[in-house]
Design a protein around this nucleic acid. Sequence first.
DNA 1: GACTTATTCAATAGAATGTGTGATTATTGA
DNA 2: TCAATAATCACACATTCTATTGAATAAGTC
Lengths: 221, 221
Amino acid sequence: MVKDYKKSIFEQFARTGKAFSNAHRIELLEILAQGERTVEQLSLTAGLTVANTSQHLQLLRNAGLVTARKVGQYVHYNLSDDLVIDLLVALRKLSERHLAEVERLVNTYLTVKDDLEPMQVKELLDLAEEGVVTVLDVRPEAEYQAGHIEGALSIPMEQLEERIDELKPGQEVVAYCRGPYCMLAFDAVAKLREKGFTAHRLDEGFPEWRKAGMPVEMKDE
Amino acid sequence: MVKDYKKSIFEQFARTGKAFSNAHRIELLEILAQGERTVEQLSLTAGLTVANTSQHLQLLRNAGLVTARKVGQYVHYNLSDDLVIDLLVALRKLSERHLAEVERLVNTYLTVKDDLEPMQVKELLDLAEEGVVTVLDVRPEAEYQAGHIEGALSIPMEQLEERIDELKPGQEVVAYCRGPYCMLAFDAVAKLREKGFTAHRLDEGFPEWRKAGMPVEMKDE
DNA sequence: GACTTATTCAATAGAATGTGTGATTATTGA
DNA sequence: TCAATAATCACACATTCTATTGAATAAGTC
């Protein structure tokens, strides 16, 4: 009796854990941490076929990690709970510390890492308040629409070069994107500095920001 | 280039996640959260064959979640980091909230749950200080030896009935064991009440207690 | 009603995982 | 040196996962 109970309990936990045992599923969850998405959007962003995406989503749904609501012919998926973000963050932290490989990859890609000091949230808030800095959201337009840091300016990374004159030359810029492993903000900072701006990268992405209860502007849902 | 990087990063995360995708492995981690164990001890507690236990441990080791050190012919395993406990806790919380099944199981087994109010840590500390309550560790002797709450009395659950006279009749007792899903303390409280004691169950187990930086006595390692 | 689009379902093949058995490697002690 | 013990390894088998394909369902449009 107790034995059975014990067995079942751990199996339930494993069911949740299983959701995080596949790279594609983790990526889907990370994307959903940005905000609501349809199946097609998810499949495009993650680079999976629609059917495959749908199947992973079913699994995540069965594990209770995401919710789905149908609007017309579209099914909008979302994280069911902020606890999912907690788990993603815990997973990241643990992986960072233990998998030397992760560290290596981060350092390999980000050769300029030391130059791009991430800004602290408090610092940023103060400076933005005073108008000293511009907070720049370099994610795709759609993601900005779905939700962004309060007062942030949206210039998707691909358009940064052509729209760079929207930024005042003397202005200090803080770029952010999806999270610590999102490359967009790194690329943006590199580009901005190349163009003579003082630019920093925000260590956190939008999900962490929202999770921390910081001011955001969200699309009505 | 960026694509490859992205792929690799999520795969590393998945590797960590994979460790939590199997019920036996989660159980092994939960046991290790109590303290260091040998392969044989783990296999006995989890009810697995030694070879099977060893294989799961290899996987956990490759994922960087546990460390092994050889002492004579024994290999002692341990969690490599408190972040692993964080992840276990996050997994529990998320599972609890989302898997109705977990809730159901807890409630089914613990029909007397409402009667056994868990005590809050602060409350407990105050009362223990004043000598009003006895903190009782009902885990097996070996686990107590490896580490326990400061000042706790050890009476393993199996011996509780015969050694019950070690407790003063009027005394209030607070029992604890391995964690929220460990049955020992529930059984103990039931038994103690049957014997006329005022008994409570501590909601947290030893790992949570230690993790929270509360006073413990540990075996020298 | 026919057509288009978004999503899911069903079936399949191939890869990965989990477990038991028995052999193998270390370490200790006689 | 030999036997005993702890742990790991190597293999084999069954099970489970994953991605792909093409069909089915559901909602909107003409």
